[in-house]
Amino acid sequence: MSSRREDYHKEQQLHQEATNHLPLPKRERKNKKQNKKRRRLIWLLIIIIAAICGGVYAYHKYSNAKNAADKIYTSTKIAKTRNVAAVLEKEHPISILLLGSDDGALGRAKTGGRTDTLIVATLNPKTESMTLISLPRDTEVAVSDHESDFPSKINAAYAYGGAATAVKTVEKYFNVPIDFYATINMGGLESLVDAVDGVDVNPPLSFSYNGASFKKGVKTHVNGKQALSYARMRYDDPLGDYGRQKRQRQIIMAVALKSTQLQNLLDDKFLNTMSSQMKTDLTFNDLTVLGTNYRKATHHSHSDYLQGTGTMVNGEAFEIASETEKQRITDKLRSTLGLVPAKTGNTLTADTKINTTRE
């Protein structure tokens, strides 16, 4: 009985092997091809749907970024000292005047538009370096188009005529072209720091201010409120306003570097915060070029400041820089911009022509 069962199974096995090599009936072959085509179509549809969804998401983010850029764009309505479109196209170094206002920061009253932070930033993509030059807010100048009010403080230029007057004054003071400007409300700096989930700082001294404490040389992660306290303390710093400028540069640079990270550029919260706290004459296309071709300029950063001498003039405290010190800063700025050496500027002269000759 056992032998007969085994023979039966062998016959079945041989029959199955034989039929496996026979061609499929026409209907089965057709069904198999249709199933294969159907699977391909399904995968194609999945890929198309994924691409469409990704495209919608990307467009949404692009649209939000452009809307934010459009909101912060504010023209100075003055002619540029040089052709900035050509400068960007050729990836030549550019300059940006950074202006920070204390209006409303830490409960302060409105100051009428004065800027307590003035930094000339130059970006050089070829040397992959960025230079930040701080200007004391009490620097003695003749404000452009308001020379009859001399002596004035450089932080009053913005109050006289907004970014346009500030740009023209700084250009004339150093004999360097200022390609763009960007203003930030220092009270809004708190929101920007929070929007990038805080920044790291390395305090140059130990101090406590407005409920926040910092220890010299200890890397510290700060939120928006702490960052504002870190950037605003002045009177307990042995270097006074110069020490404060250094800490402000740290915060602004930390925010700037984190702002260029993709997750922040695609974050609606950050874009909305930026659009409500900043103004600039950089267009969306300009910002796109900077993000593409100039981001490498942040690989190495250098900072400096204009050193003045504290002097009382008509009962007011001014910082007066010597011609030698002004020339040093002019030489540095022109060098980073790839311009030929030239004599430093003078805000009291009638000549407003800025030397933009390239090396």
Results as ranks from 00 to 15, higher is better:
residue 1 M to C: 01
residue 2 S to P: 00
residue 2 S to T: 10
residue 3 S to E: 13
residue 3 S to Q: 10
residue 5 R to H: 12
residue 6 E to S: 08
residue 9 H to W: 09
residue 10 K to P: 00
residue 14 L to E: 10
residue 20 N to R: 14
residue 23 P to H: 09
residue 25 P to R: 13
residue 26 K to P: 03
residue 28 E to I: 12
residue 29 R to H: 13
residue 32 K to R: 15
residue 32 K to E: 14
residue 34 Q to E: 03
residue 34 Q to I: 13
residue 34 Q to W: 11
residue 49 I to D: 08
residue 53 C to F: 15
residue 56 V to S: 04
residue 62 Y to M: 08
residue 75 S to Q: 04
residue 75 S to D: 15
residue 78 I to A: 04
residue 78 I to N: 10
residue 82 R to H: 10
residue 83 N to L: 10
residue 84 V to A: 07
residue 85 A to R: 11
residue 94 I to L: 14
residue 96 I to Q: 05
residue 98 L to D: 06
residue 99 L to A: 09
residue 100 G to M: 04
residue 101 S to R: 01
residue 102 D to A: 02
residue 103 D to V: 05
residue 104 G to W: 00
residue 113 G to D: 08
residue 114 R to M: 07
residue 115 T to A: 07
residue 118 L to M: 15
residue 126 K to S: 14
residue 128 E to W: 01
residue 135 L to P: 03
residue 143 V to Q: 00
residue 145 D to K: 04
residue 146 H to T: 00
residue 152 S to K: 04
residue 154 I to N: 01
residue 160 Y to A: 00
residue 160 Y to D: 00
residue 166 A to M: 02
residue 167 V to E: 04
residue 168 K to L: 07
residue 170 V to Q: 00
residue 171 E to R: 08
residue 171 E to F: 06
residue 175 N to P: 09
residue 177 P to V: 07
residue 183 T to V: 02
residue 184 I to A: 09
residue 186 M to R: 06
residue 187 G to I: 12
residue 189 L to F: 03
residue 190 E to L: 06
residue 203 P to G: 06
residue 203 P to I: 08
residue 205 L to V: 11
residue 206 S to K: 13
residue 207 F to T: 10
residue 209 Y to C: 10
residue 210 N to F: 02
residue 215 K to I: 13
residue 217 G to D: 08
residue 218 V to G: 02
residue 218 V to H: 14
residue 220 T to C: 08
residue 223 N to V: 06
residue 223 N to M: 04
residue 224 G to N: 09
residue 225 K to D: 13
residue 228 L to H: 05
residue 229 S to W: 09
residue 234 R to V: 07
residue 242 Y to W: 07
residue 247 R to T: 11
residue 248 Q to D: 11
residue 249 R to D: 07
residue 260 T to L: 14
residue 267 D to P: 01
residue 268 D to K: 13
residue 270 F to W: 08
residue 275 S to I: 07
residue 277 Q to F: 01
residue 278 M to L: 15
residue 281 D to Q: 05
residue 281 D to S: 09
residue 287 L to R: 08
residue 289 V to E: 15
residue 293 N to A: 11
residue 293 N to E: 09
residue 294 Y to I: 13
residue 295 R to P: 00
residue 296 K to W: 01
residue 299 H to E: 14
residue 300 H to R: 06
residue 301 S to H: 13
residue 305 Y to P: 01
residue 308 G to Y: 03
residue 308 G to V: 07
residue 313 V to D: 08
residue 315 G to F: 12
residue 321 A to N: 04
residue 322 S to C: 04
residue 326 K to M: 15
residue 326 K to C: 08
residue 330 T to Y: 02
residue 330 T to E: 02
residue 333 L to M: 14
residue 334 R to K: 15
residue 335 S to Q: 12
residue 338 G to E: 05
residue 338 G to S: 07
residue 339 L to C: 05
residue 340 V to P: 02
residue 346 N to T: 04
residue 350 A to L: 13
residue 350 A to T: 15
residue 357 T to N: 07
residue 358 R to A: 14
